[in-house]
Amino acid sequence: MAKITKEEVIEVAHLARLAITDEEAEHFAEQLEAITNAMELLNELDTEGVEPTTHVLPVVNVLREDKASPGLPIEQVMKNVREQEAGHVKVPTILD
């Protein structure tokens, strides 16, 4: 049985770009441990030599003609941007 520690949850949350408090990390650690333990049921199956399935349909490399087509107009694309200036998206300072 895998043990998931609070520290591991904080590490995973950081990788997933989620800010969490110590208290939340403890709660999630308990829940994620219970979930991953339940998932270890899969270990009782021998899957030696079984090919993994990523996709159920036999489609591979669907290609289209390499032809340019117009995209959406810029005013429309910017419609949902909360902070913008002169047609640019504003973000916070990247470097401290």
């Binding site: 270990n43 199956l45 899957t47 079984v50 090919e51 993994p52 399935t53 990523t54």
Partner: peptide, 14 residues
């Protein structure tokens, strides 16, 4: 241990 194993089990279920 998790992702690849689950994909193989998916093959068995299919």
């Amino acid at each position: 241990a998790y992702y690849k194993k689950a994909q193989k089990v998916r093959t068995l279920i299919k």
